[in-house]
Each structure stands twice: as structure tokens, then as C-alpha cells.
Write a protein that binds this DNA or RNA. Structure first.
Lengths: 203, 203
DNA sequence: GGCCGCGGATGACATTTGTCAGAGGGCCCC
DNA sequence: GGGGCCCTCTGACAAATGTCATCCGCGGCC
């Protein structure tokens, strides 16, 4: 049986290299390409057509989920999985929606990762139980589209005026959205609201 | 010549394990202990007395810099180095002040890391050139002790009243500190001020 | 058609925050 | 002793923000 062809994408050279070395020890796995950014991961995937793509969630250029979305369209035969340091419930949700087959934190062992790659290649799925529990308990976002939009623009602490301009809304409207978003999230003001929404992966 | 005894501390099992495997390939390096948190790193160091401690900056319990500080006091013979994903200028400064001998981003290769460990063991020092440049251009914190303190309490978006209470200050004083801090940082409001100070590693 | 509910928008009003001037006390250094 | 810097506080005013009542348009439903 021919080995599983794997693409590794992670911007941290140290980790990517170490991972490649470890996976190389497995007879049935073959790392055929490595990438340090989202776009590079796409290019490498096109060139090497891997069976499984192991993607870091945070990468320069394009994050793991958007890479997975593109891959799904371009290389339907290529299964994708996400590995990440900071798993937020919303990320998991977005990832699954993008057709990602597995979602694991970087706290898993290399042994386990190898197993996951085999599982995914065989058509299976896997989601870290703890992340899954978080995602379920966090539930769906109670925010409307506009609320989330405005909340995102408020993310870097910009004043209302700037948010209003960037969203092409009146300042009053922006304030209402922020207010209702904060109420829904149980926050005292928009800044804590932003933080909470981020923690739950809703922005 | 006996090998360099190395302690690896990183909360991401995947990376720690992979790293250990890679370093094991070097004849002159010996990973004698691994830890997944700050306190565990300290305990392992006490038990195994490594020559060099490779510490992740972000760990549960206690971050790399505080571990380095404790190690310096308890095991003066143990050299410390920090490896991190997100290098902020202020972290570098704090690390050097704590007696850390090397500071590198996780984008370095394992080969390079092995070299660094040897350099540090031999008494040398190393700072990633890019991080060093950032640190120099960022300069010293213009904030007074209290300003930084209040700014930190403002970190999670709490209202002034709460900050004042937690800092045991009058609300007016808090507002003044936040205002002057924001002015010094060139921010429009305290929230962007917090963000900027965080980026520069001043809080 | 008429009615209801809902997301979206607006303006008015109250509260919070930012800014400024000033003032007293403590500390260090010349 | 004097000067300078920081800490703390106060009071007052301007600006930003939060809250609320209300209105509009749209789709579903009786």
C-alpha cells in the first residue's frame, strides 16, 4: 500500500521541521510538501496534490480555514485537518463548515497526530473532545450579522465615529448595535463585548 | 566531553515532543527533562539540574521570563533561553533583565536552535536580530509605574469605577493616568492605548 | 387586505469618559 | 534649601458613549 501523502503548513519553522521529522518516522506517512503561509500552502497543494493537508490555524496571508475552503474547491480529493494552539469555539465551527475533517489542539502528541492523519485519510473525522464541549456550551452566536460586523470594526478600539464611517452607518445606529451586542453578551461596554465575542469565536 | 543537559518547557505537547526528538539527533545534546507548564519546569529543573533550559514564553502557571528569574536564583549554573511565537519588544527586554541568554522566535530551524543551545552553554548570548531591532525602535516605556499599572487594569475593558476600586484610587486619578498614558502613546482612548502598550510589551 | 413580529435605522437624553488646570505632599539630587 | 518629578486628588467642562422610545420596511400569517 502506498503511503499517505501529507502537506504540512505552519509558519513556525521550528515546529514544522520537527513535525516533518517525526512524521517521517512513520512508514505509512510521507510528507511531500511544507509551507509557511496560507498562499504558499495552496501553491504547494496544487503542485504536490497531497492526500491530507495538516494546516495551522494562524498563518500569515490566509488562515487555515480559508486555505481549507480553497482546497476543498480545487482539490476535492485532498482531506484537510486543522491543528492549532488556541482553539476557539467559533473557529471549530467555521472549520467544520469549511469541510475540515479533524480539529485538534497542539497539545496532542505526535503519535496521536499520526493516528489522526490516518483516520482522516481513511475518511474518518475527529474533533478534540474538549474543544467540542466548549463549542457546544458556547452555543451559536446570538448576534445579528450587523451586530457582529460592527463589533468587529470596534475591535481595535476605534471611536464610534470611525466605525460609523467604515460601516457607512449613522453613529446612532452603530451605538445601538454595540449596545444590543453588549447586552446579549452580558458585557458592560463594547470593549468587554469585543473580548467576549472573540473568546467565543463569534467575530 | 559530556553532552549538554537540556530542559525543554513548552505547553504544546506536539512541539515539545517533536523538538525533543530533533535535539536527540544531536550527539552533544541530551534532553533530560520536559515540562508543560511554568511550575512544572521549575520542579523538573530542580530535579534534573540541566545545563540549559529552553523555555516557551507563554505557558500556563508562569511564563518563561518568571521561570527564568526563579531559575537564576535557584540554579545559577543553569543557563536559560526563551523561544516564542510572538516576540514583543518588551518581552525581550524583560527577558534580558531576567538573565536570559538567548531569545529567538519559533521561526528558526531546529538546526539553528541546536546551535543556539551550544552557544548559550558555552557562555554566549544571542538575540534574534529582527526582535532586537524592534526592541530598539520601540525604545523604553515612557509610562510611569502607576500609569502602566492602571493601564493593565484597564486591559479587559473594565469601566473606570472598577479600575479605581481595584487600584484603590479615586476615579479622577484613574482618568488622569489613563489620559496621560494615552497621550504618551499617541492613542485616542484608553483602549487603543492598552493595545499599543501590549504590542510594545510595556504592560 | 390587515395585522404582527423583527431586523434595521434614527434622534433625544443620561451617563461615562477624556481633558485640563491646579494644588498638596513626598522623594531625590544638586 | 530649592528644583524637579511623581503620586494623588479635586473640580469643571467638553466629547464620546450607552440607553431608550420610536419609526420604517418587509415578509409571514390569518
Amino acid at each position: 500500500m502506498s503511503p499517505v501523502r501529507v502537506l504540512l503548513a505552519d509558519d513556525e519553522h521550528l515546529i514544522r521541521g520537527a513535525l516533518a521529522a517525526l512524521l517521517a518516522l512513520e512508514d505509512d506517512l510521507l510528507v511531500v510538501a511544507e509551507a509557511a503561509s496560507g498562499p504558499e500552502a495552496l501553491a504547494m497543494a496544487r503542485a504536490h496534490r497531497p492526500d491530507v493537508a495538516v494546516l495551522d490555524l494562524q498563518m500569515p496571508g490566509a488562515d487555515g480555514v480559508s486555505v481549507a475552503t480553497s482546497l476543498r474547491a480545487e482539490l476535492p480529493g485532498c482531506r484537510t485537518m486543522i491543528v492549532t494552539s488556541h482553539g476557539r469555539p467559533g473557529h471549530l465551527k467555521r472549520a467544520l463548515a469549511a469541510g475540515v475533517r479533524a480539529f485538534a489542539p497542539k497539545t496532542v502528541s505526535a503519535q496521536r497526530l499520526a493516528e489522526l492523519i490516518r483516520t482522516v485519510h481513511a475518511g474518518g473525522r475527529y474533533v478534540d473532545p474538549e474543544l467540542a464541549a466548549d463549542a457546544i456550551s458556547a452555543g451559536d452566536s446570538p448576534l445579528t450579522v450587523r451586530e457582529a460586523e460592527v463589533l468587529e470594526l470596534a475591535g481595535d478600539g476605534a471611536p464610534i465615529a470611525e466605525i460609523a464611517e467604515r460601516a457607512s452607518l449613522s453613529q446612532g445606529t452603530v451605538r445601538n448595535y454595540l449596545s444590543s451586542a453588549a447586552t446579549k453578551l452580558g458585557a458592560e461596554n463594547r470593549h468587554t463585548a469585543v473580548r467576549l465575542a472573540r473568546e467565543r469565536g463569534w467575530v
